[in-house]
């Protein structure tokens, strides 16, 4: 199948045309001289690193508190212009700060705001890949930022800036209030956190599910089986598979089959049917 895949792409006229065209353009202009150098995202054109000590002159509180953040674990002292300076903690994400310092500071002046996902993706490679999957939060599309869920300056990275709650799921509840609201009958899985069932960064499955088949539910709801009952799946007092040609698990996943649809909790049914 992979050979067929390669053939499919490398015989596609659009792909061939685009690659050839760009190669020709690159060849035609490669001899011309220019006075600029390319800027690799998320760098800042013409800026140099100045070190955290320079940042502390104005952003004293942020720099002092940096040592209690999880990001301080990656801080290393760096050599800039042959001098060892305090680690590039701030500039690792915000970009080199020399132009910002020269301009006397100011919001948005020659510094990355921290809302550019590329800053985070420099280190979080797996997250960058996950955001490219079919189901993902719209970070790459610019409709939300990593900082909507994570506070890079906080002592708990899984906490949005300014949030009142000190609980991981409060991050999700900011937007997904319907799913997070209290219910008469709770689903105990909610105690373990939203990430028990969802991968918030990205998944190949719809609704960011970590699995979309019965494994998602059965990994917690499996009941010890009686001897000589292979092929039968009991949950509570109810056989869910192996008792008939159209047994429940044959028809689909516990929630997608229309049975236990109140996966975030129910107000009227302790079995989370509605």
């Amino acid at each position: 199948m992979r050979c067929a895949l390669k053939k499919q792409y490398f015989t596609n006229p659009v792909v061939i045309g685009t690659i050839s065209g760009l190669a020709l353009i690159a060849l035609a202009i490669s001899c011309a001289t220019v006075n600029r150098v390319v800027v690799v995202p998320p760098m800042i054109a013409g800026a140099k690193y100045v070190g955290m000590d320079s940042c502390a002159l104005c952003h004293e509180k942020e720099v002092k508190n940096f040592t209690r953040t999880q990001h301080s674990r990656i801080e290393l002292r760096e050599v800039v212009d042959k001098e060892e300076v305090a680690g590039l903690g701030c500039e690792a994400c915000h970009g080199p700060g020399s132009l910002h310092v020269e301009a006397g500071g100011g919001k948005g002046k020659f510094i990355l705001s921290g809302k550019e996902a590329d800053s985070c993706f420099q280190c979080h490679l797996d997250k960058r890949a996950e955001f490219s999957l079919a189901s993902h939060h719209p970070v790459r599309e610019g409709k939300m930022h990593c900082t909507a869920c994570h506070n890079p300056h906080g002592d708990d990275i899984n906490q949005p800036a300014g949030a009142l709650h000190h609980r991981a799921d409060a991050v999700c509840a900011q937007c997904h209030k319907e799913q997070a609201r209290p219910r008469v009958f709770e689903h105990e899985a909610m105690r373990e956190g939203c990430t028990t069932c969802h991968n918030p960064h990205g998944s190949i499955n719809a609704n960011l599910l970590v699995q979309r088949d019965n494994n998602l539910c059965l990994k917690c709801h499996a009941q010890v089986a009686a001897p000589n009952t292979a092929g039968t799946v009991m949950i509570g007092k109810v056989p869910h598979a192996g008792f008939a040609g159209n047994s429940l698990l044959q028809q689909g996943t516990c929630f997608s089959a229309g049975c236990h649809t109140a996966v975030h909790g129910s107000d009227v049914n302790s079995h989370l049917r509605y």
Binding site: R128, V210, D213, N214, N215, A222, A230, V233, S247, Q250
Partner: peptide, 20 residues
């Protein structure tokens, strides 16, 4: 990036359930 993932719930050999 390459992810190799496997989730296997106890299925008591029920054919309706296969490992993810």
């Amino acid at each position: 990036s390459y992810q190799d993932t496997c989730t296997k719930a106890f299925d008591n050999q029920a054919a309706a359930v296969t490992a993810y």
